[in-house]
Design a protein around this nucleic acid. Structure first.
Lengths: 181, 181
DNA sequence: TACCCCATGTAATCAGTTACATGATTAT
DNA sequence: ATAATCATGTAACTGATTACATGGGGTA
């Protein structure tokens, strides 16, 4: 009942808790901001993992503060388990890209509809790229450069640029609406 | 109890069934080959979805053939539901990239370990790119060019190239092992 | 006082993964 | 005969998502 492997979501929470106690609410916001672009976490998960980790002794709940805020801090066991997680094999990324499904089944999709969907998603990626570029321009949150955070941002930038290049290279069958005449 | 929304996995199966009856086994292989790179499907899921869709009347099970092969064919209702699915909003892609978590928490990772993990994954992406390039060189499976399949392959190529460029641009703190002297 | 945001938590469901059990057919 | 592969299916579990319920605290 002790050395159960933790999952990446729980590990992330432990990672954030290295910087000091945080409430579930804080962790949700923090995860959204710092890893939300490549690791989605919901509020439900956070509270569940915190409860579970508290039971295992990886984190400790502190006194409830105003508005029922309950800060959790990481324990020595929690640090150990986080280090263990870092020592395990790192899984490959999983991508599930519904748009590519629609494209693959493109011959069953009315041409105008396909072009519409494609254009919608191109816009999404344009917006995401713009967001990343704004983050880049703003620089590190606390002024001190963090090569690790920068590297993940750089990934986002390169990814979105690659996706946009892909959109631009799509053939007319997929990208353009039927000429009307 | 009728118009329940189908999920993307079920929709994909319906998509494949447009080309004629297929068994669960066939569908697993087909999905792996044609959409496996951006939509993972397990054998368990396929059989479960087929059973469920049969109950809803979206597919019909045929006679069992040799080796208990049981071909499913799509029904009119199935075609309709597939078309409905194509008409819904297409969800954004979800990416879960454990390596980026490790990088983000890089300051808690021993330097050599970090470099090791990074190198392992660079190799994975090199291999994937090589695989895609081979697919590209081989051309369409049945000789007839398919712009839709080509577009998804093109995505894979661009994605892997972008990831590799990212690896190459990583700073020494992340990519290089400690110089020993 | 009324309203909005902060904050925690539960319930229900859906989706995905792993592992296993079973038997048929083909090839050696 | 036996091993490998084809083929279907179930069980158990883990993880992720959505929706909802509850109440505190600050502000207009």
């Amino acid at each position: 009942m002790c050395a159960a492997k933790i999952n990446a979501t729980a590990a992330s929470l432990l990672g954030f808790l290295h910087d000091g106690p945080k409430t579930g609410w804080d962790l949700v916001a923090m995860a959204q901001e710092r890893i939300g672009d490549f690791w989605s976490i919901t509020q439900s998960q956070v509270y569940r993992e915190l409860t579970a980790m508290a039971q295992e002794g990886l984190v400790e709940a502190g006194e409830r503060g105003p508005r029922d805020r309950r800060p959790y801090s990481i324990t020595a066991m929690g640090r150990q388990r986080f280090a263990d997680w870092l020592d395990e094999d790192v899984a490959e990324e999983t991508t599930r890209f519904p748009l590519l499904l629609v494209v693959m089944f493109g011959r069953h999709v009315p041409r105008d509809r396909l072009a519409e969907v494609v254009e919608q998603h191109r816009q999404i990626h344009l917006d995401r790229l713009a967001g990343y570029e704004k983050d880049l321009a703003r620089g590190p949150r606390d002024g001190t450069p963090d090569p690790y955070a920068y590297a993940t941002l750089d990934f986002g930038l390169r990814y979105e640029r690659a996706v946009l290049d892909w959109f631009d290279a799509l053939p007319a069958e997929i990208r353009a609406t039927e000429p009307d005449h």
